[in-house]
Nucleic acid binder design. Structure first.
Length: 571
DNA sequence: GCCGTTTTCGGCCCGACTGTTTTCAGTCG
């Protein structure tokens, strides 16, 4: 049973218990679920080795439930909870403004068991008959239902990033000189973003609120208060703003950056040191004396912690590492020396090879690789052997005209179903290197797929495994393969795992990056650009690398050109 | 249900905003 499946069971239990008004247990189950999701290794292995209790948040009771779940495929306790309350009530909890209390009141008072029931009840204005429910509440819940129904999930990092940049520059223009920052999951650069959080330091919060809610593109003002407001933009993205005083800005930035789990750990640490932390500052617990608040870095310092970069604040061991001054020095946003996976108009992209080179130059890269699709990927206008030969010749001529940035003649070669590559050896020999990838037959079983990828890796021109898991965020899950075996093969063949920076891919993801690095693998952060402007997507790949605790030394294309040439056996 | 510089029982983060219950509960982050 997959970790995610086990986690889902415990999230469901937490929801049911919350509906029943059971205190504290929901939090315990959610914590266990979150830790299982982020686990390094399979939960089944932990069970086999009798190491479940080593996972934080898992004690005797939950360990026993995990055992039952994995061994029998079901859980009596969950079945019991399911029998007690209708399943549709869980859907009600997805609606903004509807929490466990409201859901239970709706169920008990009106017999509402599903979102459809709720819609019908609102249509008949039945909610207003309940004590404590007025017309506004009814309207708000209806709005919430519309949002749930319309939103196709969370926004991709790239979309949220663009939107946030626009909102921020609007505010900066209106209020020049004010300190402001992105906070929340966007500052942590998570692969998907629920809503955008913005923090502003100002002694005149009212003015900021007024500007904020009157921004062009606002579709709905969800809330407007003295220091806190929320709007929904026409593109569906919710933006929350919070204004604090200058003296609290650092504490607020820390607080609103999260993650929630990270903050819980930080608060606990503060308590253990006789301090207390809130969005207003770090305080001495007994005297309520404020120790600091204006500078985020100072808060970590006063708690005897190394500064923890936002990308690491996920309660995945960063607190311990920071306490021991063992945080890795993360790869920086300007550490890349080039891009090793880009497409041109020779296959399915726009832009010439010269355009790619010019964009690489603009980014101060030392090199860029042209890696168009291989022949069998007809849908992406994969290059025939003849066209590929032409392209290589073309690139060599270009190099003679202009040496830097250096243009590598590569190819994104399909891994065929039996693990052979999509060009014969003599054709591959003409290339500087090959990026290899799976673009077909995603549904193979794990064993077959593992063998397929491992076989492909033995080709001497193969240097990078592109988008290694094949997942597309919100659309397609990873194909199945044995990560450990592939990582071993990668290491012994000198092949790097790619972080494909395309916003809907970000593959490897943060957790897998960390896993890969633990196996001793090298990571290549590539754009997979299908337009020269998309070379800038590597920002999100770098963010993902940082979230996976990667250092510069883990990154293949942080190497300068001559070292990379040696690595590729070209020098 | 978990956990331990509060320590094996008793606590579990904390504050803003909203609607409406005229004093606060519910939700959210």
């Amino acid at each position: 049973m997959e970790n995610s499946e086990v986690a889902r069971v415990f999230y469901e239990i937490a929801d049911y218990l919350e509906l029943q008004g059971v205190p504290f247990k929901p939090k315990a189950y959610r914590r266990a679920a979150a830790n299982i999701e982020g686990l390094d290794g399979s939960i089944e292995d932990f069970l086999k080795k009798g190491e479940l209790n080593e996972i934080p948040g898992i004690g005797e009771a939950i360990a026993e439930k995990i055992r039952e779940l994995i061994e029998t495929g079901k859980l009596e306790y969950l079945d019991k909870l399911r029998a007690e309350l209708p399943k549709g009530l869980l859907d009600l909890l997805e609606i903004p403004e509807v929490g466990p209390k409201t859901a239970m009141i709706l169920y008990k008072e009106l017999g509402i068991k599903s979102v459809d029931d709720l819609k019908a009840a609102i249509f008949d204005h039945k909610l207003q008959g309940i004590k404590g429910f007025g017309p506004k509440t009814e309207e708000k819940i209806l709005q919430g239902i519309r949002i749930v129904e319309s939103r196709a999930g969370r926004s991709l990092l790239n979309d949220a990033y663009q939107t946030a940049a626009q909102v921020l520059s609007y505010l900066q223009e209106k209020h020049p000189g004010q300190m402001m920052s992105i906070a929340g999951s966007l500052r942590r650069m998570k692969e998907t973003i629920g809503d955008i959080d913005i923090l502003v330091a100002s002694e005149e919060p009212g003015k900021i609120m007024d500007s904020f809610v009157s921004i062009k593109g606002a579709d709905e003002i969800i809330a407007k208060g003295d220091t806190k407001s929320s709007i929904r933009l026409k593109n569906g993205i919710q933006v929350d703003i919070r204004v604090v005083s200058r003296e609290s800005y650092g504490a607020a930035l820390q607080y609103f950056t999260g993650s929630k789990e990270h903050n819980v750990e930080l608060r606990k640490l503060a308590i253990s040191k006789g301090m207390k932390i809130s969005e207003y500052g770090l305080f001495e617990r007994k005297t309520e004396k404020k120790l600091t608040g204006d500078d985020e870095k100072e808060i970590y310092r006063m708690l005897d912690l190394q500064f923890i970069p936002p990308e690491l604040r996920e309660a995945r061991g960063e607190m311990d590492a920071a306490a021991n001054y063992r945080l890795p020095e993360l790869v920086a946003y300007d550490d890349l020396k080039g891009d090793l996976h880009c497409h041109s108009e020779w296959s399915d992209a726009s832009g010439t090879i010269e355009d790619l080179r010019d964009k690489a130059e603009e980014l101060n890269y030392e090199y860029v690789a042209v890696t168009d699709h291989s022949q069998s990927l007809k849908i992406a206008a994969g290059l025939s052997e003849e066209r590929l030969a032409d392209q290589v010749k073309n690139i060599r001529t270009l190099r003679e005209q202009q040496e830097r940035p250096w243009v590598f003649a590569g190819s994104e070669v399909d891994i065929l179903k039996d693990g052979r590559l999509d060009y014969p050896k003599d054709v591959l020999r003409e290339l500087d290197f090959a990026v290899i990838s799976v673009h077909s037959r995603f549904k193979m079983d794990e064993k077959e797929m593992t063998k397929r990828i491992v076989t492909a890796m033995s080709n001497e021109k193969a240097k990078i495994l592109a988008h290694p898991t094949g997942r597309i965020i919100g659309q397609r899950t990873s194909y199945e393969f044995d990560f450990e075996k592939v990582a071993e093969a990668a290491k012994s063949n000198g092949i790097a795992f790619e972080i494909n920076s395309f916003p809907e891919r970000l593959d490897l993801n943060d957790i897998n990056v960390r896993k890969a690095i633990d196996y001793g693998s090298t990571i290549a952060i590539n754009s997979d650009a299908h337009d020269p402007s998309q070379l800038e997507y590597t920002r999100f790949g770098i963010a993902t690398a940082r979230r996976g605790w990667a250092r510069r030394s883990d990154i293949l294309n942080a190497l300068p050109l001559d070292e990379l040439m040696k690595r590729f056996g070209l020098k």
